[in-house]
Nucleic acid binder design. Sequence first.
DNA 1: AGGGCTACCCTTTTT
DNA 2: GGGTAGCCCT
Length: 741
Amino acid sequence: MNALLDGLNPEQRAAVTTTDGPLLVIAGAGSGKTRVIVHRIAYLLDQGLARPEQILAVTFTNKAALEMKTRVHQLLPPSRRYGELLVATFHSFCVRVLRRHLDRFGGSYTRDFTIYDTDDQGRLIKACLKELQIDEKQFPPRMIQYAISRAKNQGETPETLAPASDPKRDAILKTFRLYEMRLAAANALDFDDLLLMTVRLLRQFPDVADAYQNRFRYILIDEYQDTNPPQFNLVRLLTQRHQNLCVVGDPDQSIYRFRAADIRNILEFERHYPRAKTIVLAQNYRSTKVILQAANAVIRHNRARREKQLTTQNPVGEPIRGLIAPTAEAEADLVVEALLQWQRQRSHLPEAETRAAILYRTNAQSRLFEEACRRRGVPYVLVGGFSFYQRAEIKDALAYLRLLLNPHDDAAFERIINVPARGIGKATLEIITARAARDGLSRWTAMEQVLAEGALNPRAATALAGFAGLIRDLQARLEGSPLSTLVSAVVNRSGYLDMLAQEGTLEAESRRQNLEELVTAAAEADERGASLREFLDQAALVSDTDDLVDNARVTLMTIHSAKGLEFPLVFVVGLEEGLFPHARVVDDGEELEEERRLFYVAITRARHQLYLTQAQRRRVYGEERITDPSRFLEEVPEQIVQFEAVPSSSGGVTQSPLSYGAPYGAPASPSAAKPAVELPRSQPAASTAEGFRLGDRVEHATYGAGQVVRVADGKLDIAFPGKGIKRFVAAAAPLTKLPRR
DNA sequence: AGGGCTACCCTTTTT
DNA sequence: GGGTAGCCCT
């Protein structure tokens, strides 16, 4: 028997060894689906069914791709070379294709195209709105940006869209049209375009399509539940000839609807590929029985799904623990404290067995947990938020590099034309912008024209000519010098480093260090033999999880970023109505089901111990709000959860007595724990002031209805929705008690 | 032209 | 609480 199949269960084995025709692998959380793909690739190679260059494997992140490739190599005899094996994300695959063939379209598109990230896209949209004199207040750029992206992903172009009937659609349509023109003029593609243009390329040029269809004998796609229409089309095109498509995914983990992922791609796979064989992996190898039971119970509340009960032979495990903290700050402190205690108890185990993750719904929540970690001196790794390549100084330096390769890159041009300040002001920029708009030119060409005409005032002209000279000068160094030298020339010659040195602040120093880091990254790219082009592509496509440090003992990230990962200890925090599920989705059935899938993903990241936490008060937009427990909490069977309500300390808002151990007669279920949390023993009934108790609803003559959120020292804290927290002396409080809900 | 300040708006989630 | 667009002053 083949050693590659050792240790696989029968279903996994069937998935690995099915070598002909379309294959759908429905794989539950923790069922070893990555393992199946890895072994399958190795099996195909080992059996001589395909050469490395005939296989294309698509993963969700660059990091997953890298890991997958490494694991495949580990399974195979090292004597052979498998360097041609292509494991990529959809986007990086498309970039590869377009760098070879984009010039087939002709026009302004060349293989030197620039990739516009969401930021660049936003800038361009704003510029378009301004040019069209559309009011940003009335039609927010973000809304327009989203609408355009959605339209593009549905396969629409400005031409195919029906003429707009109302002002909003008119604004969107006009911006869409101009946006596409400007993109083309800048020889730039946004993230959506990378996929769409590849599909167009294959449709429009049969010889190109033929080449790829013949080349890829086997195509494997991970996380297939998160594919969107252009990705689906691309897969269809690529598999037309061989049909050896293996898709792996879990409909219950589909969480990217907002970027047009269509869960039907996986649900209706058998209809798209009638010859398909389906294999279900329902055995979970990751989590305890308790955690799995919670996950199963939660996801069962979704109606639109194919029933799939995960089972595990793992131990029952510890009960899930629920923490109810008085404030969001206290929640963070409690989480960090519980985490430390848990790690202490397991300090005899290998470090890998003590890793923990704190998972939240929105990036904004990370701050509180970062601060709590700092307070306790706990080193942490933050995934997402502003990653290295999103920092302003890095993006500035990259913009210079982009401009060197493609001077028509308007987004880069605008970013750095006056950074550092070189005396090119608003008036001068207006002239350039107006010229570019009038003649449909890039900013760079417009600048050259304006300069040549000599119509500017001398000071502006000198400044502008200086900038143009700088870029040309740097361009001259493109050939022949190593990347690291080039990057360092950019930050020196542009005056960027001088600017930072002059600031002399701590922040400027840290930016300087980041730029140094970028030079180091360039030196590493040099070692790999990468070109500037490849260096920039990689910078544009890195995802937040890519720089995740594998061996961090505590990792902070959004649930979205955590997909595909696992941790012995997991905290899912901020389980409050309006936050998770998020306020923007609560009443829509489909969106709510997506939120629930997100919760399901969060739960199933945990291997041994799961914590679910809620803060009873939280600042939203700087305003204190009383929260309700998330409805998702009630979907976790109460027999497997131990809830603890933690009292606010008498001193401040952020500190909490960090007592752990037996829960003090705490509510058995979250519903019982609703705002009216019974007073815990450390705040005995005696602290009830003038008949007011924690959780009581009250009425105030000026502030209206509110709720008692703290009772201590004869004082009452009342939270008034939209007005913040007010403190009253209980004996003299002008309050009327309202009936309990 | 540029720096500093205020008022406002806001935030899902990411390749 | 935090980022930023736009205003005002130098």
